[in-house]
Design a protein around this nucleic acid. Sequence first.
DNA 1: TTTCCTATTTTGTGATCACAAACGCATCCC
DNA 2: GGGATGCGTTTGTGATCACAAAATAGGAAA
Lengths: 215, 215
Amino acid sequence: MDEGATAHERVYRRLRRKILHGELAPGQAVTLRGVAAELGVSMTPVREAVRRLAAEGALAISASGRVSAPVLTPQRVEELAAIRALLEPELAARALPRAHFSLIERLKRMDAEIDDMLENGDAAGYVRANIEFHRTLYLRAHAPAMLAVAETVWLQMGPSMRALYGRIGMGRVMDYHRKAIAALAAGDEAGLRLAIRADVRQGLTLLSSEGLDAA
Amino acid sequence: MDEGATAHERVYRRLRRKILHGELAPGQAVTLRGVAAELGVSMTPVREAVRRLAAEGALAISASGRVSAPVLTPQRVEELAAIRALLEPELAARALPRAHFSLIERLKRMDAEIDDMLENGDAAGYVRANIEFHRTLYLRAHAPAMLAVAETVWLQMGPSMRALYGRIGMGRVMDYHRKAIAALAAGDEAGLRLAIRADVRQGLTLLSSEGLDAA
DNA sequence: TTTCCTATTTTGTGATCACAAACGCATCCC
DNA sequence: GGGATGCGTTTGTGATCACAAAATAGGAAA
């Protein structure tokens, strides 16, 4: 599946996916030798991959060098929400003129998949499908730098989001994706911006209000 | 001066400063062994530092692994400008309630220093002082994640900005910092947002309109 | 003179090793 | 019983080495 040329690239992608999908619990420790043994490589490429992920905020490195999935403070969550609320409506707006029928249909299918995940209570699948929905839309914006920043933010939220939905369930999740898709089909930029902003804010206000008092 | 505990941290900071201040020309190559020899360390910590800087967009790594300062396309410049225009007014607005007299005085002194750089035609000093002005203001926002994103963007622009000012001079640079400081002192959030947005847009429209056709 | 091919050098990659600091745990003392 | 202390183990750091691929320089042929 992941047949990257270099070993550190493979390690990077593997770890990144685990973090993004929330397969690491917040605060969970990761050892260089452990990852190296698990993936059958030496420590060298693992260190590079970990260093890279730490630079993206996807992993935290303590003063003594220990690596772990980051634990988000409420302030941090608020900040990440603010960044998403600033960037993602812009990304959606830039994708709008390029959003043709096939893309809209694809987004509808992805949203249906998200609904399935919600009904089945599949928290990990929900997080993954939700990110995929946003990424698919934003890819059309042809704004790689902006998308990279957004992905960095998602990466930082990964462990906490997954832990949150696993703990409190997903009953209260409202579907703003339909509104976004409708605005997309209608060419309504203002409506699209509002829908995306609401969608982004929802997940993170949930996280900051209930997610962190149990820590 | 830079007495970081670990070697890769020292290498990282050293390279970062060089890039941020534009001491590397866009496209200029950097070799691992070269940096290692220059700083008196082995290749291992250099690779980690380079990998980290590449993750931040401060260095580009070719398909064959060669490392160089990034060359920005006009589209890239436009994107970076858009990110700055979204994030920095927000950072300034968040700093506003915490901006007391001493901070405003400090910013005035820093702006005067920037004017000196402009008069002396010191492009490198101008870039450095300008970044320092913005960072000083935004630090008061107590928004480390947002500031980190902004610094990432500055890092990506470093080489190109320096090259631009060195080439076309800085005669046409307008001082929006005064307006920002005035708005800050008056507690005028809307005015502050506008001033910062204008300041950010100026540097980058200049870069995208004249900077890249000579490449 | 230009172009193409080859040999040499440069350069990044990944594994291994030695080392020191931090951690975990059992023990001991108060 | 609780906290400090000691030691063995785990873990990250940095240097060195072997290797392969890429870049460069040099020479031969047209």
